[in-house]
Amino acid sequence: MIQRQERTVTVVNPLGLHARAAAQLVKVTARLDCDVTLECDGQEVNGKSIMGVLTLAAAQGALVKVTCEGEGVKDALDRIAALFEAGFYELGGKT
């Protein structure tokens, strides 16, 4: 069933959507059955393209609108949002 859903998430990790974070994101989105579009500051990119994600140059605090279109969009959005919320695991460690 083709569906379309969107959700706005916040970049919480200090380094923003830098290479490591973008790589983690793309590793997840690339396997999704639906299309993923990210929009930040009026710029829209393919969420499965690491180069696209990097050109957003999204810093900490930036708002990113994630749109999923296709199959399993709710689950896809949940997984993407969880990555953003976890700061792409950049904040890990005990200190």
Partner: peptide, 11 residues
Amino acid sequence: AHRLMLTDPTL
């Protein structure tokens, strides 16, 4: 990151 760029759908 370079490997992901190689397989980037836009590329």
